[in-house]
């Protein structure tokens, strides 16, 4: 009886030590769930979710503080992906949070006064320019977040919808025309 007790205590001490050691040794930096969520988010860094960027929103979702339907650029497909990832129900977009067609910012270079305010606002450094010099958007880097619009004192930035050309054209889902059967 006593020896059995000692064996059990010994085993529990050993296992406890191993577990404690590995908890320190193999500690995972950051929140792996937040990173997975962040990988699904569209990375426009637009702040429409109410968080300063995609990562903070991902962290908030991971903590369960906020719904998964706050990201309009991700579209309904993005919500579906998040729902699949987190094993929760699909939630439709709330009021006033409908996804918009993808657009890129464009600076009217005639009007730009070179104030650098938009450069400071751009979350992905997609605007080049310097004080009192004309600014311009690197369209290949622009995520269409619209964060550069409010700070501009002369309203020289507009959002141009990305048109479809041969390079970006996609095949559509075939349309099945239902056959009408005479009653």
């Amino acid at each position: 009886m006593i020896s059995a007790l000692w064996v059990m205590i010994g085993i529990s001490l050993l296992l406890g030590t191993v577990l404690g050691y590995s908890a320190l040794k193999f500690k995972v930096e950051g929140n792996p769930l937040a990173e997975k969520i962040d990988a699904v988010l569209p990375q426009t860094q637009c702040g429409q979710c109410g968080f300063p960027g995609c990562k903070p929103y991902a962290e908030a979702i991971a903590k369960g503080e906020v719904g998964i339907n706050k990201c309009p650029p991700g579209g309904e497909e993005g919500i579906q992906k998040l729902a699949d990832l987190l094993g929760v129900e699909f939630q439709p977009f709330g009021e006033g949070a409908a996804p918009k067609a993808k657009a890129l910012a464009f600076i009217d270079e005639q009007t730009c006064i070179g104030c650098t305010l938009c450069i400071q606002a751009c979350p992905v450094d997609a605007i080049v320019g310097a004080a009192k010099q004309m600014h311009t958007i690197i369209s290949s880097e622009c995520t269409g977040c619209e964060l550069c619009l409010p700070p501009c004192p002369v309203d020289c930035i507009s959002m141009n919808q990305v048109g479809e050309d041969i390079g970006s054209w996609k095949w559509q889902h075939p349309v099945i025309i239902p056959i009408k059967i005479a009653a």
């Binding site: 962040d38 988010l41 990375q43 860094q45 960027g53 995609c54 979350p123 992905v124 995520t143 095949w171």
Partner: peptide, 25 residues
């Protein structure tokens, strides 16, 4: 063709998102 072009478009979007994340970080 529809599925292929959707897959292609998604991979392009993914690359763009990864780049945006990197630039933002």
């Amino acid at each position: 063709r529809y599925a292929k072009s959707e897959i292609h478009a998604r991979s392009v979007e993914k690359l763009a998102a990864d780049k945006a994340r990197e630039r933002h970080d």
